[in-house]
Design a protein around this nucleic acid. Structure first.
Lengths: 254, 254
DNA sequence: TGTTGACATTGACGTTACGTAAAGGTGTAT
DNA sequence: ATACACCTTTACGTAACGTCAATGTCAACA
């Protein structure tokens, strides 16, 4: 199959300017030039362009790509295998970025505390492994070993539907809680419904549920002002109210 | 917590030049300038930089980022949620690219046939959905419905260990086959071992194995020159020999 | 106290991978 | 014959920094 610039550009999803530039710098020359001076590309050029784009996807400079691919011992299959590995690593990096987003949202809502370092987890491409070691230690000291680890993993592996359910549950919890607060009774029906919603909400993060842990977390909402703020900014006294409701719900009141 | 340019640059993994540039174009101004003219960044700037980097990860131009973030109804949490969605989409794109690599390797080895369009599957960011529809149809017509689909999915979900096993099996198959060829007997022990290895190799792609399908594929190795070439370039006559061995192995001889 | 060395500052020019005209030739379809 | 969608080269524009250069700041050490 032969292609003109435009045809190849459409096939590969690049501009014709790009193809002319690639010709100019010599990274991808057309198979031949026809009688009118048009560039004509063949099968080999299609494959070469694909390789170039793979390299580009990994942010390799064109100059370097040219050097690599014009080397006479260039092994295209070995290169593809390398691309595969790199892309898998890039995918892992994206997972980290998504985990960072999840944590940041939780943090902005006052549900968890986040160090400045954690906020940039996943951005640095080269230093990922080093950070892995450092951060792994820091996090484990702060939150306890698997807690955060597992919870991030859970969020990450959620289907979009699950995630939507999770978000819906979050707002439902807040709404119910505010309604319950108006009644002033943490033992009342609404407050107990809120406590139950909170338990469901937790199940998105926690592997196993115990009433003790639930009650403990509720107490933390009152003790740590960064958590208190999240609930109290909606309605002063809400954190305390939620703690009371949960303590009753879990049967841990006194 | 307060940071100087260098401190923030180390934290976020960007250069100090970048921070000065961001100041210059006004996308990220320091919290204050100290008495010596040094830039000092605070907590709010840390968070803002994080957001900027998230936008950058999605290839949003700094000019646009500035416009978006300086808007007075900018909702940082909503933005984070959007980043999350976009990054998930990007992850899917990477999956496609990896699938494209897998297919390309198979194709270069002559094991499957690949259209030029398929070679660029995953590169075009915007047109992914459109391609999805077009390609989905094209592929299904060519190879039959789930065959390729499922096989790519299988390769994609392989652990690195599985993938290594797969690669090892591939070369083991070729070695055994070449040894067997020397004996000249497709019913012999070595040839039958090769046929068995080929069955194992297939199991990496196929959901269910039938002797009929196995024998059919073997015949195709002889009938379609693009497959023949893969085996015959190692040793002329190898494709035919493998077919004979598999036909005996599957009991489909004659 | 003087000097070293790691930090900071503002210019200012360079670079990569194209985008975007401008000015003009080519091919075929009506 | 002319329209129209192609193609060509030339050339200047651009985004997001990298990379000097020249100079000021500050804590520490001989």
């Amino acid at each position: 199959m032969e292609y003109t610039v435009q045809e190849l550009s459409r096939l590969a999803g690049v501009s014709t300017r790009t193809l002319r530039y690639y010709d100019e710098i010599g990274v991808l020359k057309p198979a031949r030039i026809n009688s009118s001076g048009y560039r004509i590309y063949g099968e080999a050029e299609v494959d070469k362009l694909q390789q170039i784009l793979f390299y580009g996807e990994l942010d390799v400079e064109l100059r370097t790509i040219k050097k690599i691919m014009s080397s006479d011992n260039f092994d295209s299959i070995a290169a593809l295998r390398e691309h595969r590995e790199k892309l898998l690593a890039e995918r892992k990096r994206l997972d980290k970025l998504i985990a960072t987003i999840d944590k940041t949202i939780q943090s902005k809502e006052g549900r968890i505390i986040m160090s400045d370092r954690e906020k940039f987890e996943g951005f640095k491409r080269e230093l990922i492994e080093e950070n892995e070691r450092k951060y792994g230690k820091e996090a484990r000291e702060k939150y306890g070993d698997q807690a955060v680890d597992r919870s991030n993993e859970k969020l990450l592996n959620m289907t979009p539907e699950d995630y939507a359910r999770f978000e819906k549950l979050s707002s439902e919890l807040m709404e119910t809680l505010k309604e319950a607060f108006k009644t002033g009774d943490p033992a009342g029906e609404l407050a107990q419904k809120a406590a139950d919603l909170h338990r469901q909400w937790l199940s998105f993060f926690w592997d196993s549920y115990t009433r003790e842990a639930h009650a403990g977390l509720a107490q933390m909402y009152v003790d740590d002002e960064r958590f208190t703020e999240y609930y109290d900014k909606e309605q002063p006294g809400l954190a305390k109210f939620l703690r009371d409701a949960i303590h009753i719900y879990t049967g841990m009141k006194k």
